[in-house]
Write a protein that binds this DNA or RNA. Structure first.
Lengths: 126, 126
DNA sequence: GCTACCATAACGATGCGTTAAGGTCC
DNA sequence: CGGACCTTAACGCATCGTTATGGTAG
């Protein structure tokens, strides 16, 4: 097995997601491992790990797995050389929308953190 | 209707939770409105609102509704004058555990925020 | 053949959103 | 009596956790 190929357990540990989560991500088509062993074991590449790491921070921001799929597709379209101009234009527009939504959610997360810190303090002096 | 009693819509708006959420919280016994109108409308008091506001920041910290129930029970035991010593001691111990868990989760939330901010920045220059 | 790891399949839990069909308030 | 607000009941759903049962890797 080439060094850049790893089984699901190592992949899960490296990205900080559960094995079950990786399997679920494959089920829904979010990140499908690039290969399988002869015996049927999932084999992840570094590139697969990068995709997993990319979408990982989206969960705390409240994005659905479908939206993560969408973002990966948009980025793929923008990075691929053989995308026609119309597709690129639409992808760019969708990315811009994503950026706005992300900025909003990050603000929301900041508010949640502030509220959580207040809550923690309030537990110190009941 | 006394001014301190409000229907579910106003209560939901004031605490920043959905009407459905308040109904669900009653179903599971987390926060049960103190009264009902003759026609069956839920009537929330300021004290009910305080309980809702108290547990609200626990959701972003990943606590379950059951755990929120537990915390409210613990705080009630500590504040009630007619709790026997054994109950108070146990409640104090459970509160201490809660504090540790909360502190851990707050750290986790900070990490998530940092990751989310990195993610937002990475979206600016693909 | 031992052991750790992996496979699929399927049921369960959590926390509400979302109708649907109909009373209540003023 | 109209319109906003409320009721219960029930189904739906996203995201995995959790067995159960058995194959694979080395």
């Amino acid at each position: 097995m080439p060094r850049e190929l790893m089984q699901i357990g190592e992949a899960a540990e490296r990205v900080g997601l559960s094995v079950r989560t990786l399997r679920h991500y494959e089920e829904v088509g979010l990140v499908v491992p690039s290969a399988r062993s002869d015996g049927g074991f999932r084999l992840y590449t570094e590139s697969d790990l990068a995709r997993l790491a990319l979408v990982k921070p989206m969960k705390p921001l409240g994005f659905t797995l479908d939206e993560m799929c969408d973002l990966l597709a948009v980025l793929d379209t923008l990075e691929s050389a053989d995308s026609d101009d119309a597709a690129v234009a639409e992808a760019a527009a969708r990315l811009a929308t994503f950026r706005r939504v992300v900025a909003d959610r990050v603000r929301g997360l900041r508010d949640q953190l502030a509220a959580a810190e207040d809550f923690a303090r309030s537990l110190e002096r009941p």
